[in-house]
Every structure is written in C-alpha cells, then in structure tokens.
Write a protein that binds this DNA or RNA. Structure first.
Lengths: 147, 147
DNA sequence: CTTGACCTTCCCATTATTGGAAGGATTATG
DNA sequence: CATAATCCTTCCAATAATGGGAAGGTCAAG
C-alpha cells in the first residue's frame, strides 16, 4: 500500500503522513526500490489512531504520549486518564474564554439597532471600553445624575 | 511618547505595534530624527481599539474592517453589526466543536478506572473507533446477542 | 512507448505572537 | 564627562498544523 492508499484508508492526508513521519510522530515508512513509501495494515491502524486523537483535539505532543501509552501494554490506565483530563481541562478553558467573548458580543449586538444610522454600541465599546452600566437603583447615584 | 510607553498605555506589546504597522493595520508612526517611533494620544486610542477587538477574538482582517467603520462616521450600524454577528457565528461554531470533543472525552474518562491496570476505554476508542454501544431495547437485537 | 496518475523532495504561505541578535540612541549615575 | 543601563532600530527565526505547488522520477494501462 503506498501513501495515497494509506491516506484514503486512514483519513490522514498524504501531506500530513509525511509530516508526521518527519517530526517523528510515526516511524519512517518502509520504502520500495524507487523510494515509494509503503504501508501495512498496522501502519494504517496507527494513522487512524492519530487521526482520531486529532479529531479529539489532542496536540501532536499529546498524541506522542498517547501512542507510547498505546504501545505499552503494561501502562496504567491512570496515565492515559491523566492525559485526557489535562486535555479536557484545557478545552474547557478555551470554551470559557470563547463563551466570554460571545457573551459580550451578543450583549452589544443586542443593543445595536443594525440600521442605517451610525450610532452603534458595538464600535463604541471597542473604541472606548466598557460603557458605564448604571446598575444603581437610586438614580441619585447613577451616571445620569452627573449631567 | 515612544513605542514602549505607547505599549504600556495601550496594552499592546511593542513587537505587535511594529507588526501591526508593518501589515498596514495601523498607519506608520511618526519618527524622531533618530528614527524612534512616536505616538500621540490618538494613536494610543487606536491601539486600545485594536487590543479590545483582539480580546473579543476578532481577527486582524476583521479589525481592519472595524477600524474603517470606526473612522467612517457615516457608517451604518448594520455594517458593524454584520461583522459582529458573523464573528459570533464563528465563535459558536468553535464552541460547538470543542464541546463535542469534551463531551466524548468526558464520557470516555468517566468509564476509565484510572488505576494501575492497563485496561482503558479512552485509548481503546482512539485505537479502535467508537465502541459498539448497545442502544437496543430488545436484547434479541443487541450486540450482546451476537455472542 | 506514450499518457495520466501517482510518487519523491523542497520550498513557501498561512495566523498571531514571541524571541533574539547586532547595533544605534537616550538616560541615569558615579 | 564617562560609562552603564535601558531603551530603540531592523532583520531573522520559530512556533502549530496544514495546504499549495513546482520539478522531476515511477508505474500501469492502453
């Protein structure tokens, strides 16, 4: 099986297969006399492993660890779990960060008329920072009272 | 004000200020006789605009649009809103993708003992793909019945 | 034997940011 | 004033993962 077939069989592009080999994520493929890379079922299995891990958002570095754990049949499941939990934590940090952005943006967009007039709280906030929000119950202390 | 002070005042690193100038996001700074860049309050204002937009996850390209809209005092707020909504949509796609990953990973981690034994559903799934989940109510048709 | 579809390596681009080197300018201190 | 520390300048490189493409070799079908 040459690289194109291995690519189709694994869902990893030929480009990436060569790249993974180059950076040492996977071992160098066997070569034919004319230096074509050849792959066997086992290699394709590894490539699928890599693709699934990528689909789960693991970095190449983490996949290196996971591959080592996969091959080590005497690994402790706690070792695998540690990698997974660490990754989950990172993903959740990312989600929180992005959600904070959307929260702010939705709030702003919700207050933007979105019509032909130039007045726009979205660009206002980006330009001038968080607008003073009057959360004051008593208007005597609100921003409005400063006029 | 030279670049270091402008950096502190705006929260954008000197490196990035130079970069933004180089790619044309901001206009070239005035220079002293000894070619030090100098910045005035107005420039710092622009830099803050850029930083806030970055904090909201806008790409440099989008910020280019936003800056143009900001400067165009006859812009339609709908134009700003369009950029924002597009960005919100993209952020939500990202969130959904990452959440799907965490959902899967948490499920797997929840079934991993995390002890000294090698048996681990996490690495199992990465290696062999989605395990057959028996969602069948009638055991006659379940995977179990294939034994 | 030609043609088309593959393969090889090598280089470049992407996005936003950081790091560093080499050298000049400014500022502070002794 | 001399010198040292701290700035500034430009240029080059690296990051992470992927895609695009060129130039040239190989293979299989016709």
């Amino acid at each position: 099986m040459n690289i194109g077939e291995a690519s189709k069989a694994s869902g990893v592009s030929s480009k990436m297969i060569r790249y993974y080999e180059q950076i040492g994520l996977i071992s160098p493929a066997l070569r034919t006399a004319s230096s074509y890379r050849t792959y066997r079922d086992n290699d394709v299995h590894t490539l699928r492993f890599v693709r699934r891990a990528r689909d789960l958002g693991f970095s190449v570095e983490q996949i290196k660890e996971l591959l080592a754990l996969w091959r080590d049949r005497s690994r402790a499941s706690s070792d695998v779990k540690a990698v997974a939990l660490e990754h989950i934590a990172e993903l959740e940090r990312k989600i929180a960060a992005i959600q904070e952005m959307t929260r702010t943006l939705k709030h702003l967009a919700g207050h933007c008329h979105g019509d032909d007039r130039p007045d726009c709280p979205i660009i206002e906030e980006i330009a001038n920072g968080p607008a003073q929000v009057n959360t004051e119950v008593n208007p005597r202390f609100g921003v409005a009272s400063l006029k």
